Amino acid sequence: MPATQPVSGVLGPLEAEVMTVLWSRGEPMTVREVRADVNAARETPLAYTTVMTVLARLAEKGILSRVREGRGYRYEPLVGDTAGIAVREVVRGFGEAAIAGFVDEARADPKLLRRLRALLAEEP
């Protein structure tokens, strides 16, 4: 699922391009595959090492998983979109206070509160 929200503050421009490719493909990808897809939409192609570095950094941030394949890795998103990344960062940074803030915001908006209740009622 491609990101529809602005990436400012959540992902850098290259990270956003890489994540858009991974979300749209919907399956684990190698550096070579990501590079080919990213470069298809670019006037100036990115180097293999640039894409490899971006993927490694996203994996270090916990945004991607990576599984060894031969001498390289296959990368897969752990988060569904930029909103998921932002929420993850807020919760990791502020913990229980962030959750309480989300609940307070939901209480102030009946539509959002219904959505929160529906999400909590779903089976894991």
Rank of each mutant, 00 (worst) to 15 (best):
M1V: 01
M1E: 01
M1S: 06
M1L: 02
P2L: 13
A3N: 11
A3T: 11
V7W: 06
S8F: 08
S8T: 12
G9R: 05
G9F: 03
V10T: 11
L11K: 03
L11C: 13
G12D: 12
E15F: 00
A16N: 08
E17G: 12
V18Q: 11
V21Q: 05
V21W: 05
W23E: 01
P28H: 06
P28I: 02
V31Q: 05
V31N: 09
E33S: 07
V34P: 00
V34G: 00
R35F: 03
R35E: 09
A36C: 10
D37T: 05
V38P: 10
V38M: 15
N39L: 05
N39F: 05
N39D: 14
A40C: 09
A41D: 10
A41Y: 06
R42T: 05
E43C: 04
T44E: 11
T44L: 11
L46P: 04
A47Q: 14
A47D: 13
T49V: 09
T50Y: 05
T50L: 10
T50D: 06
V51F: 13
M52K: 13
T53Q: 12
V54K: 07
L55P: 03
L55R: 02
A56K: 04
A56V: 01
R57F: 01
A59K: 00
I63Y: 15
I63W: 13
L64Y: 04
L64M: 07
L64A: 06
L64R: 00
L64W: 02
R68E: 13
R68L: 05
R71D: 09
Y73C: 07
Y73H: 15
R74F: 00
R74L: 03
R74E: 02
V79F: 07
G80T: 07
D81Y: 09
T82D: 10
A86G: 08
A86V: 04
R88W: 10
E89Y: 03
E89V: 03
E89H: 02
E89S: 06
V90T: 12
R92A: 14
F94D: 14
E96K: 12
E96V: 15
E96N: 14
A97W: 14
A100D: 15
G101Y: 13
G101Q: 12
F102T: 14
V103D: 14
V103R: 14
V103T: 13
D104A: 14
A108Q: 11
D109R: 14
P110A: 10
P110N: 09
L112T: 12
L112C: 06
R114M: 05
L116F: 08
L119H: 10
L119G: 15
L120R: 12
L120V: 12
A121Q: 12
A121I: 09
E122M: 15
